[in-house]
């Protein structure tokens, strides 16, 4: 009974939240927001998703590998973006002159900032979900990790 209402609601709510999160993420360099807030909002939508379907489908739980790749991928994008500067003979994490900074005010502008924001967004979304799941049920089984 309850599940149905929840499912109905979540079917509307989750995409809306994700859309909002994506907006915040992509417009980090243009409007308030950025990788951390956007990522958290998307992560929260995943949390909602996993909470709603928790009893019905354990398999919906985010896989360990997936969250790991989100985690590591985000920071790796960051570090790699930083190393590009060194490869170009500039300094670590150089943006100007290494990445195309574009025209201020456009969506595809600001070079490294957008790239890194997206990386952070992915990372934070994964992190928030992962932290929540671990706190909720982590360490319950002796070797449930793998």
């Amino acid at each position: 009974m309850n599940d149905m209402i929840l499912e109905m609601l979540s079917r509307i709510l989750i995409p809306a939240t994700q859309l909002f999160g994506a907006y915040i993420l992509f417009h980090g360099h243009l409007s308030p927001g950025g990788g951390f807030s956007g990522g958290t909002i998307i992560g929260a939508s995943f949390i909602l998703y996993s909470l709603v379907y928790r009893f019905t489908a354990q398999k919906h739980r985010l896989k360990h590998e997936t969250s790991l790749w989100l985690e590591v991928g985000g920071v790796l994008v960051y570090v790699m973006a930083g190393l590009v500067g060194i490869v170009f003979g500039r300094h670590f994490l150089t943006n100007q002159g290494v990445f195309p900074t574009g025209e201020p005010g456009r969506l595809w502008s600001s070079g490294m900032i957008l790239l890194v924001t997206l990386g952070i967004g992915a990372k934070v979304a994964g992190t928030v979900l992962k932290l929540f799941q671990e706190l909720l049920e982590g360490g319950a089984e002796p070797d449930g990790h793998h």
């Binding site: 950025g34 670590f92 994490l93 201020p104 600001s110 900032i113």
Partner: peptide
């Protein structure tokens, strides 16, 4: 805006001027 292409100065600060912090 000129240095980084971002009009959100805060984004410019956190991911460009002070990107090391954000890392």
């Amino acid at each position: 805006a000129r240095d980084t292409g971002a009009i959100n100065t805060i984004a410019a600060i956190i991911i460009d001027y002070r990107a090391y912090d954000t890392l």
